[in-house]
Design a protein around this nucleic acid. Structure first.
Lengths: 354, 354
DNA sequence: GAAACCTAGGAAAATGTTTACCCGAATGTA
DNA sequence: TACATTCGGGTAAACATTTTCCTAGGTTTC
């Protein structure tokens, strides 16, 4: 809060030497280095032939004055602004935050800055932010959804590229990036098979979520290829809650007493499952192994035992979204739904150990 | 991803009518409305005397052309850019995300746009983003910490106002906003006393966190005022984990068999406590009531029973940070540490019921 | 009816860079 | 020596606004 830069502090008289607190311009640098403004500009933009000593003089003057080019003047001239918009629609940010961070990270390398907007899942607000971002002249927009079900396109005549992250757009010519839930299901089933488990049940979340169906599908695919199947040939669907994890686990165990491993549709469900099994006197993974999905550290790392799970790799997803956006900005859009592979996070609930 | 705006699509010949895809400028509006650019500007900025019919003509022309003023040209002229920077340092975003959302919300009303940066708790990265934001000519900066312990100031000669949210600055002339943990402790203790509980234990988190100490202090203050005290006259400190919740609860119960309520330093700890109590055959809140702190929905709402807790009101904190920043930008900084009151979230772990 | 005063709106400078174009000097070639 | 090239760097016109005058005409006022 030093130097509030407002009208409060006494404006030092404009005394040639340091004109009050005015930021140095390219002209100041030019004068200090004894060259023209064009030369200074050329030094900073690069790609011009200049005598090395001239360039050095300019650079020295610039550092001495703590000069950095005014992006507003730059963008006024050129057609790029070096900014992108990020519209998040996640109340709790469980999903959108890692995506945002990944994107921010990738854009940082590209020298792009990110405008953050929060639409709270509200279409009106989303349109408002869209207009606001366009008025700001962003070069592109990323829309981060809060669930994996496909969503309506943001608009048909948006003058800049748009990338949909997490929730894909329904429009096939849009660019979308989503977690590969089928691969996640495969990864989980592979892990269990590799450890020698064979009687595998699946306790899923809400079947109206594509994510739930995809995870089951991936798991079933691997199991069938191995000559077996999900116990009872299909998954049990229910709400995304711990309570369903407890109830569902007991129901599955009753139907299939031989079950030696249980795949869960989310960490919440797995957490409930672990509680129920422990209360019923079963050891995990000794009597039965358990896997979750999502890798919510808060739940998974502190459960008893710590939960093996699938990480959706959302930060990579964000990074990929950023890459796709910059690619589109550079005139090379890659329409379609891109899938990001998840990661296996093995912990004690399948491996045993402490 | 329509109209990539890049070099890909054939540039329509500049045909007077609609010069390709060039955004309309104030000049286009002026021509269409039959006035000068100055007049258009005056209409949009307001505060000038214009004949109503002239104003209407300009507005009609602007909407017809879908004109919005170029903020880069505006900021080039004026001294404000209408942008602020938000430096987050939270890996998981449990704390910084709600703050960001609150700030974004409050700035939205002020017509300010937010640049998001992620420092990942790394000072180098933080300085990098600081420079980047200053180069972008932001009007101010909010730094969101990841824990409540005070932190070093961002820099001594930053030319724009800075507000520290969640983690206060050590420098007294900086502006900081933090959750009022003492008030949170008071709120929790009040709640329990009001429900008739009298033998109250306190199971805290890591004592090196100011937040932990403050919460205990607030609770003790209320209890002493009511003529009693924390059982054993002091809180039990330990790691912020469920395991500590289980172990600590058992230890406290052994020392103080008469305990009828247990305050916990976090929802994690409370969650562990609930598990231990249930496993030991105690009913909550029949035999003993439990309260958490932080209101992490993921944990608190799904525990058995749902957990009464204290919400840090982080979104309000973010909003307050935004207000303090705009105030400082407007030349009226309010140095010091501002505290935001938390909220009581009563659930079944103290109230009973289903 | 003339002087003073509004009133609505225009002309143009200013904001900080970029870049197309230009020019003088040095260098190379015939 | 005469001419063409290259090299290094300067000139000035954009870029889209805002804002400070300025002015032409209309309205008061005495």
């Amino acid at each position: 809060m030093r130097t509030p830069a407002g009208a409060a502090q006494p404006q030092a008289p404009v005394d040639g030497v340091s004109a009050s607190r005015r930021r140095p311009t390219i002209r100041d640098v030019a004068v200090a280095a004894g060259v023209s403004t064009a030369t200074v500009s050329k030094v900073f933009r690069g790609g011009y032939r200049l005598r090395p000593e001239t360039e050095q003089r300019v650079r020295d003057a610039a550092t001495a004055l703590d000069f950095s080019p005014n992006p507003y003047a730059q963008s006024l001239h050129g057609s790029r602004t070096g900014t992108v918009g990020l519209i998040a629609s996640d109340i709790d940010g469980r999903f959108s935050l890692p995506v945002m961070m990944g994107a921010e990270d990738a854009f940082g390398i590209e020298q792009l800055s990110v405008f953050l907007c929060d639409a709270r899942g509200d279409t009106i607000r989303e349109q408002h932010h869209l207009r606001k971002l366009l008025a700001r002249r962003v070069d592109g927009i990323i829309v981060v959804g809060s669930e994996t079900n496909a969503r309506e396109t943001l608009g048909a005549d948006i003058p800049v590229p748009v990338v949909y992250a997490y929730a894909p757009s329904l429009h096939p010519s849009d660019v979308s990036v989503v977690p590969d839930n089928v691969a996640g299901g495969r990864l989980a089933a592979d892990h269990l098979l590799g450890l020698g488990f064979t009687e595998i049940g699946y306790l899923s979340g809400d079947g109206s979520y594509e994510a739930a169906q995809d995870r089951v599908r991936g798991a079933r695919e691997v199991l069938r290829k191995a000559g077996t199947d999900i116990l009872g040939a299909e998954a049990l669907f229910g709400p995304w809650s711990e309570e369903w994890g407890r109830a569902g686990a007991r129901r599955l165990l009753q139907r299939h007493p031989q079950m030696d491993a249980l795949l869960c549709g989310s960490d919440h469900i797995a957490r409930g499952t672990l509680d129920a099994l422990r209360e019923d006197g079963l050891r995990v993974p000794g009597d039965i192994a358990v896997m979750g999905h999502d890798n919510w550290e808060l739940l998974a790392a502190q459960s008893r035992p710590p939960l093996s799970t699938i990480d959706n790799n959302l930060e990579t997803l964000g990074r990929r979204a950023a890459e796709l956006l910059t690619s589109a900005i550079d005139g090379d859009p890659q329409p379609g739904v891109h899938r990001v592979s998840p990661l296996l996070v093995p912990r004690a609930s399948t491996l045993g150990g402490s």
